[in-house]
Amino acid sequence: MDAPAPKKRGKNLKNPRQAKANWQYTVADVIDLYDLKADRPVKTWVKNGLPVVRSLDMRFWGNDLNAFHKARRKETKSACPWHAVNCPVCKNRHSLYEEPFCIECLPNGRHSAVVRCPESPRGFAWKIIKDDDLPLVKALLASKDPSDKED
């Protein structure tokens, strides 16, 4: 008896050269092209800046899809500044300047900044804070709301 094939792990970053540049794609075409389970990622991409050709149904140019995924791939490879947290829920960066956050002390003595994702009520993004950046983050927290100080 053959062993079952291992499950394919989902890829969040899509191939930036997968779409044909001169073609127009409907939402259903995009779902098939990128092997998505539903149309929710496409709606999130539109909200995050994917250009849409307005017609009776949403359509996308192939070169716009490729450029969007290329920029998204480049953004995720860039280093995250001390005042930003990468969110695993919505795949965006949340700024500690804009979003409410708290500082938690980890068992190993390090600290992390925790931000509630505005896209999902149950989603959290967190980031381990470097020792050099801890005073900056604590000062930012103190300036935002003096009642939420940690330690």
Rank of each mutant, 00 (worst) to 15 (best):
K74Y: 02
Q24C: 13
P81D: 04
A28F: 03
L33H: 04
V46F: 07
P4A: 07
I128T: 15
S95L: 11
R116W: 07
P81Q: 00
Q24M: 15
R116A: 14
A71R: 12
D132M: 10
P121Q: 07
E75P: 05
D64T: 04
N108V: 13
R59S: 12
E150R: 11
V85N: 01
H69Q: 15
A19N: 06
L140W: 02
Y34Q: 05
L136A: 06
D29G: 04
A5R: 14
A113Q: 01
A21S: 13
V114F: 07
A125Q: 03
K77W: 00
N63T: 13
V52A: 07
K77N: 12
M1P: 11
K37R: 15
D151K: 13
R17S: 13
G123Q: 00
C87T: 04
D2A: 14
K149L: 15
E150K: 11
W23Y: 14
N66M: 10
P121K: 09
D151R: 13
V89F: 03
P51S: 05
F68E: 01
L134E: 06
D131I: 12
R72L: 04
F60R: 05
V114K: 05
I129R: 02
V115D: 02
W61A: 09
L96C: 03
P118W: 06
S55E: 14
P121V: 01
P146Q: 00
W23V: 11
V30F: 05
L33E: 04
S143R: 09
I103V: 11
F60N: 00
P6Y: 04
L134P: 03
I103N: 00
A84C: 12
C117A: 02
C80W: 01
N108M: 13
E150V: 14
V53N: 11
P121M: 06
L50M: 00
M1I: 10
G10L: 11
K7P: 08
P118M: 09
K138N: 07
G10V: 12
G123H: 02
R54W: 07
L136P: 01
D35A: 14
K20D: 14
G109C: 08
K130M: 10
K20F: 09
C102I: 15
R40D: 13
E150W: 13
A28V: 11
C87V: 03
P107F: 03
M58C: 05
W82V: 07
